[in-house]
Design a binder for these strands. Structure first.
Length: 566
RNA sequence: UGGGGCGUCGCCAAGCGGUAAGGCACGGGUCUUUGGCACCCGCACUCGGAGGUUCGAAUCCUCCCGCCCCAGCCA
């Protein structure tokens, strides 16, 4: 154990908070919040925010609240509120009993709105939505005051109360903040605070038919909870004056500081909920938890660990610059984690039958294999060896190029933990010419994989005993999109046009070593020389195990092949 | 030619007036019963550009260029 404390990499938000604590702002107290809207599944971009908010709070001996920003019932659903909580917990964070909802504050929010009306700072506007847009002006022209802007306080109070009482049709009126229709910041051109929407809310049912807007509800919710630092993404920077305006207008004692950071983008994928929802709805993926999705549910199913995701979030840093992180970094993080933890195992994805001609037919040996060379504590296991085996088709070439040093006619290689074998004959299908079997011999002196005479071989192959292996389905996943930035539609192509047709390859009949029998759903392994795999959470059964490939191993041979091909 | 924000290596990212950290990727090598892992070496005389201030500038000033966000009764 090292005595040096781990110091997380610096970032501007941590710096701000550290300075605030040092200056005893908020009496040195730090409270953040993670405020998802329950209108979709959480993705890796949310993970960045979750790690930031919970991480910073913990670092400064504060807490992080969990709050659903549920102010738009039309788009929200309990399916999402359940999945979101499960995902945050899975990621490894705990909000104790501090689970809140913006809807918890509807009554309070209403009272504050009444207060603003009484003070002449808010009014009921009866323009249609189209008229409101027209009155708002444009980026370069100021807006015009609504003709309803000068309604009396009493009339506003009466109307607002009747809005709540359900006397008006949806859209007939809205409550607006009276700020400045000429502001160069469009958000301050009398923003809507409440709209009428006869939609059943997943928590408040039909109690309300008016719902507060984000800008109005969010800051007040933060203030009610005593949040000190309200961390959000860059697109809210223009809203900060409004965030501050409401809190100042109400003269609320707790006035949290809003701080914005750049959201995460990842290469070869899309991150917006709208796009992810489209992939799900149009069935380009099997669901929100499809292992190709950048959702936490998808990544969990793919085999990613919470640790690897947290580590990734720490490594990418926090800034205000728009950035797209190379997905290779994410893949590096899971490989790094799995290398330490995953038991090694042998699995043949594309089996090629091998008969060891000089090995007795009825003989079976139990050979000892190391479970994890990175961790001796993980012990060893026995792997059965017999006369008929399967090796990977890719590990044999009849006419190999110079740099290929696996099996080929006349060549000797090692079978991992077993014996040296030499390929004597290639058996082909008479009609198709397809290689259907290899006839080999083994050297009994090399049991365990070492040759007493010091003879070297250039390759070690993984294998399974045909009679003992169990069958499994293996799903090979690749990037969902075939271009680094599918969201960039400047080429005139919709992001869907870049879907990778090879993002999923299903291998229905693979052969894996018998120790994998009964492997529990969610358990992770390294298939030696192949990659990291995870027993599928949904579709795997004891009779027919299903393994998802989380990520391949780094593969320098593949790089050579690719380089030569060019 | 409205407002806001951002520009440091292919991708992230430290740096905050004292002479360019780190990670990923990439290239080379050592080791190897995983073409894995580990380890070693290389990878920005330069910080969007041009001026200026200074003994000294990625850091300060000026102008310019580029990119992103905002005209939901979405969040």
């Amino acid at each position: 154990m090292s005595t040096t404390e781990y110091t997380p990499p610096p970032n501007f938000i941590r710096t701000i908070i550290a300075e605030d604590v040092k200056a005893n702002k908020n009496n040195g107290r730090v409270m953040t919040r993670f405020p998802p809207e329950p209108n979709g599944y959480l993705h890796i971009g949310h993970a960045k925010s979750i790690c930031l908010n919970f991480g910073l709070a913990a670092e400064f001996n504060g807490v992080c609240n969990f709050r659903f920003d549920d102010t738009n019932p039309g788009k929200e659903d309990v399916e999402y509120v359940d999945s979101i909580q499960a995902d945050v917990r899975w990621l490894g964070f705990d909000w104790g009993d501090r689970l809140y909802h913006a809807s918890d504050y509807f009554e309070q929010l209403y009272d504050y709105a009444v207060q603003l009306i009484q003070e002449g700072k808010a009014y009921v506007c009866s323009l249609t939505s189209e008229e409101t847009r027209a009155y708002r002006g444009t980026l370069t022209e100021p807006g015009k005051d609504s003709p309803y802007r000068t309604r009396s306080v009493d009339e506003n109070l009466d109307l607002f109360q009747r809005m709540r009482a359900g006397e008006f049709e949806d859209g007939a009126h809205v409550l607006r903040a009276k700020i400045d229709m000429a502001s160069p910041n469009l958000n301050l051109r009398d923003p809507v605070m409440y709209r009428i929407r006869r939609v059943t809310h997943h928590r408040t049912g039909d109690k309300w038919c008016i719902y507060p807007m984000y800008d109005y509800a969010h800051g007040i919710s933060d203030s009610i909870e005593g949040i000190t630092h309200s961390i959000c993404t860059m697109e809210y920077e223009d809203h900060r004056p409004l965030y501050d305006w409401f809190l100042d207008a109400l003269a609320l004692e707790c006035h949290p500081q809003q701080i914005e950071f750049a959201r995460l983008n990842l290469s070869y994928t899309v991150m917006s909920k709208r796009k992810l929802l489209k992939l799900v709805q149009e069935k380009h993926v099997a669901g929100w938890d499809d292992p190709r999705m950048p959702t936490l549910a998808g990544m969990r199913r793919r085999g990613y660990t919470p640790e690897s995701i947290r580590n990734f979030c720490e490594r990418i840093g926090v800034g205000k610059k728009e950035s797209t992180v190379d997905i290779a970094l994410l893949e590096h993080c899971i490989r790094e984690d799995m290398n330490k933890k995953a038991p090694r195992v042998m699995g043949v994805l594309n089996p090629l039958r091998v008969v060891i001609e000089n090995y007795p037919e009825d003989r079976v040996e139990e050979l000892e294999a190391v479970n994890n060379p990175e961790d001796a504590g993980m012990g060893t296991r026995k792997v059965p060896f017999s006369r008929v085996l399967y090796i990977e088709r890719e590990d044999f070439m009849e006419d190999p190029p110079k740099k290929f040093f696996r099996l080929s006619p006349g060549r000797e290689v090692r079978l991992r933990y077993a014996y040296y074998i030499t390929c004597k004959e290639v058996v082909k299908d008479e009609k198709t010419g397809e290689i259907i079997e290899l006839r080999c011999t083994y050297d009994p002196q090399t049991r365990g994989g070492d040759s007493p005479d010091g003879r070297k071989v250039k390759a070690t192959l993984h294998w399974v005993s045909a009679a003992h292996a169990i069958q499994a389905e293996v799903r090979l996943y690749d990037h969902l999109f075939s271009v680094p930035n599918p969201a960039d539609e400047k080429d005139g192509q919709d992001f869907m046009a870049h879907l990778n047709p090879k993002s999923l390859e299903v291998l229905p009949v693979c052969r894996v070593e018998p120790s994998l029998k009964g492997a529990p759903a969610g358990s992770r392994y390294q298939f030696e020389r192949q990659g990291y795999f995870c027993v599928d959470l949904n579709d795997s059964t004891p009779d027919k195990p299903v393994f998802n490939r989380t990520v391949t191993l780094r593969d320098t041979w593949a790089k050579i092949v690719k380089a030569e091909g060019k």
